[in-house]
């Protein structure tokens, strides 16, 4: 169990960038027409977004919007981390490419994290750890999360096509060295024997495609996610009524409902964006969080789980209003 706690970490803004191009699962030709309604009912996913543009373009747009939202300038950014698994170029890192395009300061720490559905929480924990070590009163970071998963899908794969959707999110994070109160707690875990639950392989045309074993993703999620959350809440000496919202990675309705049931949560505290946006990998938590930000002024629980098999949960204190926006491009 890797439980950490951090003082003075504050989320200062979130920008979601969502492609306007939308596909409707009720019109998905690879699924038998009679099965489509059942698919939507059980996955919870009606619409998915498709980006023809590379993930770098979406991140670039999101960063610019986040700078405008927060009023930060290029010289303010101490850390830029990109969490993605769908870069066009594996070398150099996407964070370095964006650093060059956006003309950030030479003193910026830049790197990528290869992670999917648990990636937002992993990114937050990485940034929380790094920020507090910097020799600055109020160091700042940008966490870019998301994928263009549609670029990895086989057009005839009925397991992946109805589920995955494209989007990214950029979160602005600041460390206040004068704040000694705990504002973030994390529990990060890995179950590597589940590495074949979601993976990529080369198809006969030498194209990289993503494969999903839905039954194993279900089994690993239901087995490991509730316990990960319970351990985190217990370590914080809280009870599960305290978080004002439980924001889960938007995997699919079958999985998410099972986790909610096992934790005996009040469904009113569990926002859901599956129907509109599908499974947007590491962007799904911030996208879903933004639907509740206007109502939250204390602890929120975030939980990401999936490719790895990786499970990561966080308790984040959101005592100040977090400006946010969701834009379509």
């Amino acid at each position: 169990m890797a439980i950490t706690k951090h003082c003075g970490i504050k989320i200062k803004g979130i920008v979601n960038v969502i492609p306007a191009l939308t596909e409707d699962n009720l019109l998905l030709p690879i699924i038998d027409e009679k099965e489509r309604q059942k698919l939507v009912e059980h996955t919870g996913i009606r619409y998915r977004r498709i980006s023809k543009l590379p993930v770098k373009y979406l991140f670039n747009k999101g960063i610019k919007e986040a700078m405008e939202l927060t009023g930060w300038s290029n010289d303010d950014i101490d850390i830029l981390i990109c969490v993605t698994q769908t870069t066009e170029l594996s070398i150099p890192s996407l964070a370095c490419q964006l650093h060059g395009e956006l003309d950030f300061n030479q003193q910026t720490i830049c790197y990528d994290i290869n992670s999917g559905c648990s990636g937002y929480v992993y990114g937050l924990q990485t940034i929380a750890s790094l920020l507090s070590t910097l020799n600055s009163k109020k160091p700042r970071a940008l966490l870019c999360c998301g994928d263009v998963s549609s670029h990895l899908l086989s057009p005839d794969d009925t397991s992946t096509q109805p589920i995955f959707s494209d989007a990214i999110s950029v979160t602005a994070i600041e460390f206040d060295s004068n704040d000694n109160s705990v504002t973030a707690r994390f529990n990060l875990e890995t179950i590597g024997k589940g590495q074949r639950a979601i993976y990529t392989e080369m198809n006969s045309l030498n194209k990289k495609i993503m494969r999903l074993n839905g039954i194993d993703v279900f089994a690993y999620s239901v087995k490991y996610v509730p316990q990960n959350i319970i351990s985190l809440i217990q370590s914080a000496e809280m009870h599960n009524e305290i978080p004002e919202a439980y924001v889960f990675h938007q995997a699919n309705k079958l999985i998410n409902d099972s986790i909610v049931r096992k934790l005996n949560l009040n469904i009113d505290k569990v926002p859901n964006t599956l129907n509109q946006f599908g499974n947007t990998a590491s962007a799904s938590i911030p996208i879903t969080l933004c639907t509740r930000l206007n109502e939250i002024n204390n602890w929120v629980l975030l939980s990401g789980f999936g490719v790895g098999f990786s499970v990561a949960s966080a308790l984040i204190k959101l005592s100040d209003f977090v400006p946010h926006k969701t834009i379509e491009i």
Partner: peptide, 26 residues
Amino acid sequence: WSSLNALIYISRINEITNVLITSGDL
């Protein structure tokens, strides 16, 4: 029996019995 219906079936078994069945089991 399809990937979707198998997943629904396995999830319903879990909901009712708390038993988890993996693809390795199947």
